[in-house]
Nucleic acid binder design. Structure first.
Length: 271
DNA sequence: AGGGCCTCCTGAGAGC
DNA sequence: TGCTCTCAGGAGGCCC
């Protein structure tokens, strides 16, 4: 399940294979993703790819004619393959390059997206209202405190709110709150600047570490070479409800918050 | 306005 | 063994 580190690892993996390449074809085998893949995506045919970027969990493939926006959803992955590689189940889209290779999009659950947008991308409704990148200076304790002022909702829900900070999904929200010693249900507006400072540092540290290790592999994530990441064994709380806390030995609690599984240590994490 | 719930989908795993 | 049920989850969209 790609979160920001997985998308970043994917970007780093596919980017060298795409930049400066000319697109020969775009093959859409199954357009039924989160939104129907529009035919206008084929405007990329004949274009040369200028660069590949990431914004939040979106991958942006830049050309002079427009931008392809790719979201991996829950179960999507991108791989670089020889163009004659046999198609497998859930291989929905091929971006065929003039050099005989293909960028192949596979997504069993089809929660992902493949869209086309013409400049400037900041005007795209999916991208225009996003908060700061968690690894940028724009995400800092002062900014976070300002966003959380008077907010009564749980800090975990705020961490996962793309308007406040992008790219922090369920796994890393659980892990960062554990590392910062903050209870996931703590009222966001009540957390003082000292604790927010720790939280911001932990979010950055955990995401950076996950990227360095190639992302988290839980079920189906692989990088552009089809290799898994190695972060899963580093998780302290996610997926460990009912097991013992790695810090104090107390049993970890598991609750639902915003319909998402939330795991925490009632001893180590406080309001 | 802000918050909360619903929804899309498939595969894994549990339960019978 | 083989069915059926439940759950997982990003994030837009809708409703109150």
């Amino acid at each position: 399940m790609p979160e920001l580190p997985e998308v970043e690892v994917t970007k780093q993996g596919v980017s060298p294979h795409l930049v400066d390449q000319t697109v020969r074809d775009l093959v859409i085998r199954n357009a039924s993703l989160r939104w129907p893949v529009p035919d206008i995506c084929k405007n990329i045919i004949g274009q040369t790819i200028k660069q590949v970027r990431r914004r939040a969990k979106y991958l942006l493939i830049d050309t002079d004619a427009g931008i392809t926006i790719v979201h991996l959803g829950m179960s999507g992955s991108l791989r670089i393959l020889p163009a004659n590689t046999p198609v497998e189940k859930h291989d929905h889209i091929d971006l065929v390059l003039e050099n005989g290779r293909v960028l192949r999009y596979n997504d069993p659950r089809r929660f992902g997206a493949w869209l086309w947008y013409e400049l400037p991308e900041d005007g795209h409704p999916l991208l225009s209202k996003l908060g700061p990148e968690p690894l940028s200076d724009g995400f800092n304790p002062q900014q976070l405190q300002q966003e959380l002022t008077n907010k009564k909702k749980a800090i975990k829900l705020c961490l996962m709110d793309n308007h406040i900070v992008v790219g922090v999904g369920n796994i890393y929200a659980n892990e960062a709150l554990f590392a910062a010693g903050i209870h996931p249900q703590a009222a966001a507006g009540n957390i003082d600047i000292d604790r927010l400072t720790i939280l911001v540092a932990e979010v950055k540290q955990i995401l950076a570490q996950a990227i360095k290790q190639g992302g988290t592999t839980l079920k189906d994530f692989t990088n552009a070479d089809g290799k898994p990441g190695y972060f899963a064994q580093k998780l302290h709380v996610y997926g460990r409800g009912g097991e013992t806390c790695t810090a104090c030995g107390n049993l970890l609690s598991e609750i639902k918050l915003g319909q998402r599984t939330t795991v925490f240590c009632g001893v180590c994490q406080s309001h």
